[in-house]
Nucleic acid binder design. Structure first.
Lengths: 331, 331
DNA sequence: TTGTATGCGTTATCAT
DNA sequence: ATGATAACGCATACAA
């Protein structure tokens, strides 16, 4: 801040002009090898650090991206964020983070605020309406995670595949009555997952699905769902996500209901905390940090259209069997 | 990006000069009420958004701050980050986030990279050496969390108070032999906590403390520590942090050792996941998001010295008793 | 009260 | 290969 060394300082010290310094420090420009070396040395010696903001003013590229997420304390988003940050770094981008606290209005404000200081935006699990997305979409280059809209670039996991693996696992164990503890009805992912259930269920002979309703996609929501699941008479319950699954486990433990003996429990995502509990939560893993990295790749493809396009990475999901599921107890 | 409306566009549309627009949009400047209103309307209509970077170039203030943390997936740092982000937002600042992945060298690089695009930096649980901190300290205004160095502003919890509450809780339950599963020996907080133990132990008549050594401050570290704790013969074990505490719980469960019957277990911090397990982990709560908010307050006091100084907030720690501690089983 | 001119640090253009 | 100059979008000193 205080001791700001500028190109001019370097230029003066090296006995050249400012533009030569600029060129010497830009890798692809034409400068005599000897002068370049001298300039680089002087720059290092003076501790010169380019001012990104000033550079962005003229190049039109800030080398900053923004990430808007609903809740940093949710381990799902923390992992995605980690992936975004890590990939952005290696690509030479810094990342603004904005936590909307699950609030659609706040989200929109954050997007507007950030849009002017970044080259592009990543919206993760956007809570805002389609109309709002539309209104910001042509103003800003952006990539969506866990949501699709128009022809915007999206990074999504295959929800129907997740559901298929989950239900087939339980079905193979012998469960014929499975409860589904849904997430928020407004959630794009929840709708996709429910659609997946409706698609898979007919293919599994004699399988009954009991939708338990919509719950907050967090620990507390799972606690609520647990009682409804028990009342439904199902022998297994699939939760919208792992946090709900953990809530179900906790509530069942409190009620003295044995897992997996009396009830099998599955989550979705495989967030890091799913391994911390016992019994461990059986779940379907999504490549969380890879989702973040893919989103960055996609965004950079949009920002720098000259580069070769990274082929769209696939995002494999994978069943992870732990101790919370087993064959149903015969009665 | 594409449809960039500038002050000049607004000026032209409103029939005034660019500087008048600039003044009209700055709250404290002198402009005729009528013209101001007109300009503001035009600006809104055109969807004008000021370019922060350009403004920062001339004012010297970017209204951006940076946060450097060791690991976003660690719930402790996620909570602190949430606090930082939230407070920064209400103060009109955007925040750059940088995850060093626990690497001191990466951390230094991130600090250097960010320092030019922000008004100030918050370093959380800095892994870098004192010398490195010194080297960046006069280059950048910054605030430290969980670390003290020279006369830099620091936000720290009272580690000795944490230890006091933890040990007195176990002592009151009747434990006279307590094991301490330490964090990394290089960790500033770990040193403070150990110092706290050495200070408190003499005051508790007949209390023996067994230091178990240094472990990675995560789940796996706790798993390792558990076996050593059992071998030590202690009736209770205090972990450096909650993640280690959870690892200890899991390992003891695997070995069939009853908690709290055979062994009481305590963590430190009360990260969100501590409530997700059963038995619940007894711990000493730190106000994590408040730590983040306090750091932002302190940083802004440094950046805007004109404003009234926010009095230094105190950061109360508080024992949270759950099911992982109880009286030692008499033998 | 408003307009003109200048500069923030950098890169791009056009000379040389 | 290098230097002079202009321009990015904005805020401010100064003039009117």
């Amino acid at each position: 801040m205080a001791g700001s060394i500028t190109v001019r300082d370097v230029a003066k010290a090296a006995g050249v002009s400012a533009s030569t310094v600029s060129r010497a420090l830009a890798a692809n420009s034409v400068v005599a090898a000897e002068t370049r070396e001298r300039i680089i040395n002087v720059a290092r010696q003076l501790g010169y650090r380019p001012n990104h903001a000033a550079r962005g003013l003229i190049t039109g590229r800030t080398h900053n991206i923004g990430l808007v997420i609903p809740d940093l304390e949710n381990p799902y988003f923390a992992s995605v964020t980690k992936g975004v940050q890590s990939r952005a770094l290696t690509e030479g981008y810094s990342v603004f983070i904005a936590d909307s606290d699950e609030d659609a209005r706040a989200e929109l404000e954050l997007v507007r605020k950030l849009s002017k200081q970044v080259d592009g935006l990543i919206l993760c699990s956007a809570r805002m309406s389609d109309a709002d997305i539309a209104s910001v979409a042509d103003d800003t280059t952006m990539v969506l995670i866990n949501r699709e809209w128009g022809d915007l670039t999206s990074v999504v996991v295959d929800d129907s595949e997740i559901i298929r693996q989950a239900l087939e696992h339980l079905y193979a164990l012998g469960h014929r009555h499975i409860a589904y503890a849904g997430g928020p009805s407004t959630s794009w992912s929840n709708r996709k997952r429910w659609a997946g259930i409706e698609a898979v269920q007919p293919k599994l002979e004699g399988l009954t699905i009991s939708p338990l309703g919509s719950f907050a996609p967090v620990f507390g929501g799972g606690q609520s769902a647990a009682d409804v699941a028990v009342a439904s008479g199902a022998t297994a319950v699939l939760a919208y996500n792992d946090l709900m699954g953990l809530g179900i486990l906790a509530r069942l433990a409190t009620r003295g209901i044995d897992v997996p003996g009396d009830m099998s429990v599955m989550g979705i995502d495989d967030v890091n905390v799913a391994t911390l509990v016992s019994p461990g939560l059986t779940t379907v893993r999504s490549p969380l940090t890879k989702i973040g990295r893919s989103a960055v790749n996609a965004l950079i493809d949009l920002i720098e259209p000259t580069d070769r396009h990274n082929s769209i990475e696939d995002l494999p999901v994978q069943l992870v069997v732990r101790q919370s599921t087993s064959v149903p107890r015969s009665r």
